[in-house]
Write a protein that binds this DNA or RNA. Structure first.
Lengths: 152, 152
DNA sequence: ACAGCAAACGCGAAAGATTTGCATTTGGAA
DNA sequence: TTCCAAATGCAAATCTTTCGCGTTTGCTGT
């Protein structure tokens, strides 16, 4: 039993595994589950949301592990942390998506993506004006307003 | 004793009182203390920071009251809630300041203001592209990077 | 295929942060 | 000055996030 054991071409690994390997992180079940989950979501989700989804879908990560895994995913840039104007931060997959921003409804919290972004080069302009910064690597831009439903 | 009782021209009220009255909020000690405090600060500060400052400076608001007061100040637009990329949100006075954004150091958390903003009319463009939103009232824009000190 | 080690994980407890209920106080309109 | 809705203080209840530590596991080198 050494020729070929399994049908699946497991040699190549999943997409999530490749993502993790590409940033030198171990492809652990927790990180893979979180990446898969965030990949399905179309919008930023809260930690509480992730926690309950994981409890249902997969075995369920310990809360502490979710925090640790998210921290590592954010720190290597696979995932973004987004401010939705509420107290609690939300998370969104970054890799594999076009750079984009959000319209956030202050009534119901609903979110829509926007492809509009800052004019090219504005980071350089901002940096040039700055007296204290050596470099800028990313920015966050969110628009707050009222969605059609909440406007009645 | 009915002609004139006190030296101070108390007839007019403080700046914080006027701000509160202008948005139809009662000028309570808690809100006034918070507004005064935020007015001194040059950058967004955390709730924990506000709490300890209040304990020292004035009598000190109950934690619950700080949360309630900040909620009301934010909801009427006197104060902004800012995402600094960490878990905890921060607060900054809005009224009386020019519209501006922030450069946030991912190393030490230091913040610098930037007067650069989005091109005029971008909110309208974004709104026009949107399928779900009726109106946009504000936006947040933060740049994340490394300050000179942290870049060593 | 296997051993070894640093990195992750689970679990439970600790530490913090935020909210709620309720009795009491107070700003400001009448 | 009176009065009432809105604020506040306080303490308890809830959440959220972090930590310590013993156990498990991904993955590198053999």
């Amino acid at each position: 039993m050494n020729r070929k054991k399994i049908e699946e071409p497991e040699i190549y690994g999943t997409e999530a595994q490749h993502l993790l390997w590409s940033v030198h992180l171990k492809a652990t079940p927790g990180r893979v589950a979180l990446l898969d989950l965030l990949n399905e979501e179309k919008h930023p989700v809260s930690i509480a949301h992730l926690e309950s989804r994981l409890r249902k879908i997969s075995a369920g990560l310990a809360a502490a592990s979710i925090y640790r895994a998210l921290d590592s995913l954010v720190s290597v840039g696979l995932v973004n942390r987004i401010d939705t104007g509420t107290i609690h931060a939300t998370y969104e997959i970054r890799v594999g998506r076009r750079h984009h921003h959000h319209l956030i409804c202050m009534g119901c919290g609903d979110i829509e993506d926007s492809e509009k972004c800052l004019p090219k080069g504005i980071e350089h302009t901002v940096l040039a004006d700055s007296k204290k910064f050596a470099s800028l690597s990313r920015h966050s831009l969110e628009f707050f307003g009222t969605c059609i439903k909440c406007a009645k």
